[in-house]
Amino acid sequence: MAEPDLAQPLARSGHALPLPDWERVPWWMIVLILAGILAMLIIFTSADYTNILLLLSSGIALTLYVTFFAYALALVVGLVAGLMRVSRNPVLYTVSTLYVEVIRGIPLLVQILYFFYVIAPALARAIPEPYADIFRREENIGIVALAIGYGAYLAETYRAGIEAIPRGQMEAARSLGMSYLQAMRYVILPQAIRIILPPLGNDFVAMLKDSALTSAISVKELTLWTRQRSANTFRPLEHWTIAALLYLVMTIGLSLIVRYIERKFAIPK
């Protein structure tokens, strides 16, 4: 293994000593790590910043809560809609296509506000009492609205993944006597999901950032929390800097988790 690594730069550059390949060094990561260390030094040596960090962290919990539940729900909504999109049943196809086209044509913020002001109150009125409360809590409304909005994009991702699997896979599964749904579940989807893991991961990260939109319907996640604290203390610079850093740490963390999952489920070659 070590031999070709050494031989390559030697052969190319002609230097006596193998030099690192400067173009391939992940400079962005080094800059980011240095900036992170600097930020941590500032935060933990200043009592002000430490205080702000501790106060804002309570917003993180709600941001992660909203993101995880909304994404889990969106995965289910997207799977169902995606399966309907590849269905040969014209009713299922039409309903799912309508859903995808309508949702993708409306800004997510407008969808969240619409759900909050129009649909959720109607649902709360229509549903019997102990359950109606579900649609009165802001974070639940935010979760459902985000899930419906993202479900449309995920549906298209699932569809693309399913269509990328060669037809012979479905034929082989059906020839063995499996039903269409069995073939989907055991043969097509396990392969399709491996293909679409990168875009699914991107959407997970994007969802974390878009969870900030639920601040518009007063879900007290990180963004709304930061806004209120910075307004109360008249110190926007410190608060928003820390909020931005917190988002960055969370998104990079998620990306790393997604990459790990991708590697873990890769099909051996």
């Binding site: 012979g168 599964a173 020839s175 006597g177």
Partner: peptide, 28 residues
């Protein structure tokens, strides 16, 4: 009726053993 295809159409995400046991378990 068993069918064998030109392109084999084995299930690439399953081991050889799992390829052969899958339908036995869920169909038979």
């Amino acid at each position: 009726v068993g069918m064998v295809f030109q392109q084999f159409n084995l299930f690439p995400h399953l081991t050889v053993l799992e390829n052969i046991t899958l339908a036995q378990q869920i169909v038979r």
